[in-house]
Design a protein around this nucleic acid. Structure first.
Lengths: 144, 144
DNA sequence: TAGCAATAGTTGTTGTAGCAACTATATATT
DNA sequence: AATATATAGTTGCTACAACAACTATTGCTA
């Protein structure tokens, strides 16, 4: 194990990069008056792609705590972008769905997100993407 | 620009990896009764390496908002790990320093951190480290 | 030098992260 | 069927993130 791994704090770099991206996204949302936060967007994106899922499933998809999902959904319900619907088969479960307004929001915001993703990758190629993915996956799976 | 960059959400992976690391660190701190959070550790680590710096400088070093630093320091002061000392030359400035207890905390926790860093890098080599660093740097600098 | 801009830091507020404790419902065991 | 256990979700609490507004200094400039 080379010294690099011990002395060079990758954590800082990951954290700094993520914060920078998050900040950029939020400022872009704000500048375009999308009235939404980054994490609210992440949930909407997943609800669009997986119609009618539960809090738990959404939590797994987004790597969020179920309590956090529950609270963000609360805000999205207040904004009338999401509806909760209890399952008649299992009365513990609550299915989540975008409202028409929620789907519109998704379509409205998505082009911005695509642009921002492109911005991040300027100067990098397909191989870089795969490298990053590979390394992050290894690290992720190394953690007990 | 290959399609990959638009359709594959790197953000999720970065976020998931970072959360996993943070969680692992926190649980390890707790299991070893270090009575400290991950971000409190990050500040202590930087204060150990850069003696007598201001809130602002510490914020830049850690990619944290100065308000966030101010509040975390408040907690560290309460724990008697850090002292604030006003600058006589520029009365707006406040210098931060680890107390002896703070330095002890650093030395006490550091071995755990080294172990955890190693754990993350199992199965990866020096080249992987440099690749990760390079790619994250490019992304970071791409963000306006 | 008076006035204004810049800098350092704090406080208020909203939102996200995660643990613990709780309710309610479903499933398994006997 | 009665009890125990597991699962889905909410609420309370502490901590971090970031913007806005504020105080208190310092530096700049007309």
């Amino acid at each position: 194990m080379p010294d690099t791994f011990v002395n060079n704090p990758t954590f800082y770099k990951l954290d700094a990069t993520l914060k920078r991206i998050r900040n950029y996204w939020q400022k872009t949302f704000d500048a375009n008056k999308k009235d939404i936060t980054v994490d609210q967007w992440l949930l909407i994106e997943n609800l669009y792609k997986h119609n009618k899922i539960t809090h738990n499933e959404l939590a797994k998809l987004t790597s969020k705590d179920i309590t956090t999902v529950s609270r963000i959904i609360e805000l999205l319900v207040k904004k009338e972008l999401v509806v909760r619907e209890g399952s008649p088969l299992d009365r513990r479960k609550v299915y989540l769905q975008l409202t028409p307004k929620g789907s519109e929001k998704y379509k409205d915001v998505r082009p911005l997100v695509l642009e921002m993703r492109k911005t991040g990758w300027v100067g990098l190629n397909e191989g870089d993407y795969q490298e990053l993915t590979r390394i992050l996956d290894v690290i992720y799976n190394n953690i007990p």
